[in-house]
Amino acid sequence: MAGALDAVDGTLRVAERIHANLPAMSSAQVKIAELLLEDPTAPLDLSITELADRAGTSPATVTRFCRQIGFPGYVQFRVGVATDAARGAVDDDAWRADIHRTLEPDDTPADVLRTVLSAHIRSLRATASVLDTAQSRLVAERIASARHVDIYGIGGSAALAAEMQSRLYRIGVNAHAWGEVHAGLASASLQDEGTTAIGISNSGRTKETIEMLAGAKSAGALTVAITSRSASPLAQLADVCLLAPVPEQYLHPADLSAKHSQLFVLDVLYLLVAQRDFTATASRIAASAEAVAGHRRAD
């Protein structure tokens, strides 16, 4: 998996890597994750075999776990743990207070602001750390060359589908957003090998979105899932899954930190599509801006 965040920001903590990758971990890897989130410095005192024994797994699983969160092996993983520990206990305590914080009924407005900001930042960092840039480029190429692009989403995801459709249409992509299952199924049935279909669902379990994406896949379209869980039905159905993980929800399972992660993935795809013919993209955006200029008040 080719996450991009480390190329931008080398300060991603081990715990943040673990939270970001939890949705894609096997049950055996989750045991290791839970142990390390409870005792972050354990690897400094344990060999790979001892850590595996404590987690009830095997050394090979520990090695796969290290690779899953971005380290080549256990030695490099221990260096990452040591680096985090060297940042200092005071800084670590403050960071832990923010990353594990949930909304409480007696929180002050300042507490609420800090909780929400922390949740949204963590969601974006988690998404950037696991987003597969090679797969994203492939999807962008297929979108740019597609005869027709369908984007499916229900509820809050429908708004994101509509936003992506508007952006793509403005730069010359024949895109359509569907938030109503009957219309979406009808459009899905008209897809073929020259089309692309995208399903957006945080849980990956939204029945209507799964049905629409399944219809498009049966008709021959390249199917793409944007979801927080790689093991979800939507992700398993799609030809390509782009993860938008949400480490923790602070109040509601569909909170806005999930939407920001999804929008982040969609924004990356949009810009990759726009790059393919930058001159034409700029020209179309300028033309559409000029078309509505008369409906804006002068300064």
Rank of each mutant, 00 (worst) to 15 (best):
A2W: 13
A2F: 12
A2V: 15
D6A: 10
V8Y: 06
G10I: 03
T11N: 13
R13A: 15
R17G: 07
I18L: 10
A20F: 06
A24W: 00
S27K: 14
Q29D: 01
V30G: 08
I32A: 12
E34T: 08
L35I: 10
L35K: 07
E38R: 15
T41E: 15
A42K: 08
P43W: 08
D45Q: 12
D45C: 08
I48E: 11
T49K: 15
L51F: 07
R54K: 15
G56Q: 09
G56T: 05
S58N: 04
P59E: 05
P59G: 07
A60R: 11
T61M: 04
T63G: 05
Q68H: 13
F71Y: 15
P72Y: 13
Y74D: 09
Q76E: 14
Q76F: 11
F77M: 11
R78A: 07
V79Q: 11
G80Y: 05
A82T: 05
D84E: 14
A85P: 02
R87K: 14
G88V: 02
V90Y: 13
D93Q: 14
W95P: 09
A97E: 06
I99T: 13
I99M: 14
T102L: 12
D106M: 03
P109Q: 06
A110T: 08
A110H: 07
L113H: 07
L113E: 06
R114Y: 01
R114V: 00
R114P: 00
T115V: 11
V116T: 07
L117D: 10
A119Q: 01
R122W: 01
R125C: 05
A126W: 03
A126S: 08
T127F: 00
A128C: 13
L131V: 05
D132E: 12
D132C: 11
A134L: 14
A134D: 15
R137Q: 09
H148C: 09
G153F: 07
I154C: 12
G156T: 09
S157P: 00
A159N: 04
A159M: 06
A162W: 01
E163L: 11
S166D: 07
S166C: 08
H176N: 13
H176V: 09
E180N: 13
A183Y: 04
G184L: 02
L185H: 06
A186T: 13
S187T: 08
S187H: 03
A188P: 02
Q191V: 03
D192G: 14
D192V: 08
E193R: 14
E193Y: 12
E193C: 06
T196R: 07
A197Y: 02
A197V: 06
I200S: 02
N202R: 10
G204N: 01
R205N: 11
T206L: 06
T206H: 08
K207M: 05
L213Q: 02
L213D: 04
A214Y: 10
S218L: 14
S218E: 15
S218K: 15
G220H: 09
L222F: 00
I226F: 01
R229E: 00
R229W: 15
R229D: 03
A231T: 15
P233G: 03
A238F: 04
A238T: 03
V240Y: 02
L242Q: 01
L243C: 01
A244P: 00
E248W: 03
Y250G: 06
A258G: 14
S261Y: 10
D267C: 10
V268T: 08
L269Q: 03
Q275R: 15
T281Y: 02
A282K: 15
A287L: 07
S288I: 04
E290N: 12
V292W: 05
V292E: 10
G294H: 08
